[in-house]
Amino acid sequence: MHPTRADLHQKAMQAAISVTLALGVACGQPPQPFEKDPTVTASAADSAEPSGADTADGDTASEAADDTASEDGAEDTGTTALGTCVGIVDPEELTACCAALSAACDAAFPDDWEAAYECAWGAASGCTPWGPPVPPVA
């Protein structure tokens, strides 16, 4: 039987809680058994869409990319004609822009992986793929 979303969520939460038990062991405390039904806020479980769901609209994402494509910085940084997300400050808007740009670049360069990657993730794009967990400075 395919697991329900609630099943997936609970398994994920249990896994996350289980790794934190190492803290108690390191502190010399006996590990506490984690709850079978870990804390899951009702608002999260019941919410159909996150508050940023309006950006799920493809038009919105495209608009974000289109809007920034005309920025002066695009030509200066040598990016492709498909656009750039450089200069976008709002994180949600940046996410939508980068997703739209990535899809556009894949479509524009189906046989040239270097060009597609440079287009979507190069410095001129303003986007990064799966940024690594480099810690922040204080």
Partner: peptide, 18 residues
């Protein structure tokens, strides 16, 4: 969207308590 909900629940339910 599912992963985002899980992210917030993970922080609040798994990370903050310890």
């Amino acid at each position: 969207a599912d992963a985002r909900r899980l992210f917030f629940d993970c922080v609040e339910g798994a990370i903050l308590p310890p």
